[in-house]
């Protein structure tokens, strides 16, 4: 019982202290750029839980979800194709390494040119930024399929779809998840800046509008909202990862104990 209390105390202690320090240190603030935390919290609700939730926040998240999902399908699909053929791998590797090395935000101006400034452009930007980490990690994962398991599948004549599902994709899944995690943070960055660059709605657009209009407490609330979304999405990711990779973490722990 005390052990649980200690853990809760350690987990909550510092965050509570930090928020309290911010709260009281900013309480009497007259600095225009650093409004009291109290004011920021007060404007948070009215700013984000009204029309803006439906008009800005949800569309942004929808575009992120659509782009991210498409990147996952595309990245894993192409990654499996490339990873399972030695020749294709050798030919495409430098090209992929180059495309991956391009900082994804520069794709915003390019895709604006090609696809305008609508939803399509923003989703395309998210796809084309998120796909590389997923693709390259999938390639690496598919390459690393265990030889003994490969032999097992061959002797027991496990082929076709069964082999893809139960051998290739599952073997590569720890790497795919690593790629997907990197892609998620890239995706959030791209969601925000594609809206900062050219948009008439969305989270990134609204926050920039507050900035331009010198609505400083509202701007701060936007910054906090973006932060909370980042934290929330990464927590969600962990839950999914826990489900998908429970066998992996379990077998790793079992190996260490032997």
């Amino acid at each position: 019982m005390t052990a649980v209390l200690t853990r809760v105390g350690l987990a909550l202690g510092l965050p509570v202290v930090l928020v309290a320090v911010w709260w009281f240190a900013s309480a009497g603030s007259t600095d225009f750029f650093f409004p009291p935390l109290r004011t920021i919290v007060e404007v948070f609700g009215p700013t984000w839980f009204g029309e803006r939730l439906v008009d800005d926040v949800l569309p942004s998240l929808g575009r992120l979800a659509a782009g991210y999902a498409a990147a996952l399908v595309l990245g894993v699909g192409l990654g499996v194709l490339i990873g399972s053929n030695r020749w294709v791998r050798a030919v495409t590797e430098p090209v992929l390494e180059f495309l991956r090395a391009i900082p994804p935000p520069v794709l915003v101006p390019v895709l604006m040119l090609v696809a305008g400034i609508g939803n399509g452009m923003k989703i395309l930007v998210i796809i084309s930024g998120c796909v590389w980490p997923i693709l390259l990690n999938t390639v690496a994962g598919v390459r690393a399929v265990d030889g003994v398991l490969e032999d097992t599948c061959r002797t027991y004549r496990i082929r076709g779809t069964l082999r893809w599902r139960h051998l290739v994709l599952r073997s590569a899944s720890p790497q795919i998840v690593t790629g997907a995690r990197q892609a998620l943070s890239v995706g959030i960055i791209l969601m925000v800046i594609s809206e900062m660059f050219a948009a008439s709605s969305g989270l990134g657009f609204t926050v920039i509008q507050f900035k331009d209009g010198f609505q400083i407490p509202e701007m701060w609330s936007g910054v906090i909202l973006l932060g909370l979304l980042g934290v929330l999405l990464s927590m969600l990711f962990r839950v999914v990862e826990h489900q998908v990779l429970s066998w992996y973490h379990g077998s790793r722990t079992a190996q260490k104990e032997r």
Binding site: L149, D151, R157, S173, W247, Y248
Partner: peptide, 30 residues
Amino acid sequence: EGLAVVFQEYGRSLFPWLRVADNVDLPLRA
């Protein structure tokens, strides 16, 4: 067809992501 192998590396010849029964079941599904 009709040939099975039991490998030395038991730790690597079983699918770690499948439960015991599913490991036995997979060749039969195939």
